[in-house]
């Protein structure tokens, strides 16, 4: 333990090469992928210039959200020119971009793609497709079938330690088992690109949806002692406003700085290894998690549901 370079650095009070994440809270043009790719390239360049090691874009940042039949028209492929252009840009800074991803089987997924050093590092396909109220995703999209942690390359950060991340897209976060699975898979950061439509304007100075995300992001961060990086979009589509509020929540459950407003913005936040360490030593829920008990109970419930 004491030979750990981070710990030694921390003990020595040295500045550690912790990564800086940029939240690219913007408003895409609905269904205009070329215009949105150009905007991504501008923002990625700006983020790199400002010293970011990772730039996170909102859900469906290459297409916009309420696409309806534009879903098929706006799909991209991992080896297609759009992702290739963004991958080239990721030589300067890692990035997470949102898109409609078409596979060889022509299924269309709501996906977030992690790019670094010119390569696709990880793809998350949204598992929970909301199809109720104002949402209609399962009509147009195929659902993903996995939550997986991965190591963020973060080459520009030259971090001594690996940073493990997992991606959950918007509605995925409303199912507490999703971040719980990622926590068990060893993530330090839950990255959540989102396109959350604002609604609920009762008294309380904040939208109902914003309050819900405030509770979720802070609760998961604190209970799982991980960072939660939440990037929501802004702007309006067919009268529906998206509320922004992008934020980084620390592993103590506290929001770092202020959440972003409803305007376009690209705030930067540093992820601190020391904060993770302190949170996990002070509140060692991850250490004490009883995977054996959970697994046994899950097996019992599976047996029951088969009966």
């Amino acid at each position: 333990m004491l030979s750990d370079p981070d710990v030694l650095a921390e003990l020595a009070g040295e500045a550690r090469p912790d990564p800086v994440v940029a939240l690219a809270q913007g408003a895409p043009r609905l269904g205009d992928v070329p215009a949105n790719v150009d905007r991504h390239l501008e923002l990625i360049a700006q983020a790199a210039e400002r010293g970011a090691d990772l730039v996170v874009f909102p859900e469906l940042s290459l297409t916009g959200y309420f696409l309806k039949d534009l879903v098929a028209d706006s799909a991209v492929r991992l080896e297609g020119k759009e992702i290739s252009a963004l991958a080239r840009a990721s030589r300067a800074v890692d990035c997470v971009v949102g898109c409609i991803l078409e596979g060889d089987d022509h299924r269309l997924h709501n996906a977030a793609v992690y790019l670094s050093r010119g390569e696709v590092v990880h793809v998350h396909r949204k598992v929970y497709l909301p199809t109720y109220g104002l949402f209609d995703e399962a009509r147009y999209l195929a659902a993903g079938d996995r939550f997986r942690a991965f190591t963020m390359p973060l080459p520009s950060a030259r971090a001594h330690r690996e940073w493990r991340a997992g991606i959950l897209i918007c509605e995925d976060l409303w199912h507490p088992t999703s971040p719980a699975v990622l926590a068990r898979d060893g993530v330090d950061v839950v990255i959540c690109p989102s396109a959350s439509p604002g609604r609920g304007v009762g008294s309380g100075a904040e939208l109902g949806t914003a309050q819900s995300y405030d509770v979720m992001t802070r609760t998961y961060a604190q209970l799982l002692t991980t960072y939660v990086v939440y990037c929501n979009r802004v702007g309006y589509e067919d009268g529906v406003g998206f509320w922004g509020g992008s934020r980084v929540v620390g592993p103590d459950g506290e929001i770092r700085g202020e959440p972003a407003s409803r305007e376009e913005a690209m705030p930067l936040h540093r992820l601190e290894r020391g904060a993770l360490r302190r949170a996990r030593i002070a509140n060692p829920m991850l250490r004490d998690e009883r995977h054996d008990v959970v697994d046994a109970e899950m097996r019992r419930l599976r047996r029951r549901s088969r009966m």
């Binding site: 043009r29 609905l30 309806k68």
Partner: peptide, 10 residues
């Protein structure tokens, strides 16, 4: 079954 958003391309 021809469903496009009003803000198509905007």
């Amino acid at each position: 079954d021809f469903r496009y958003p009003r803000d198509w391309g905007r």
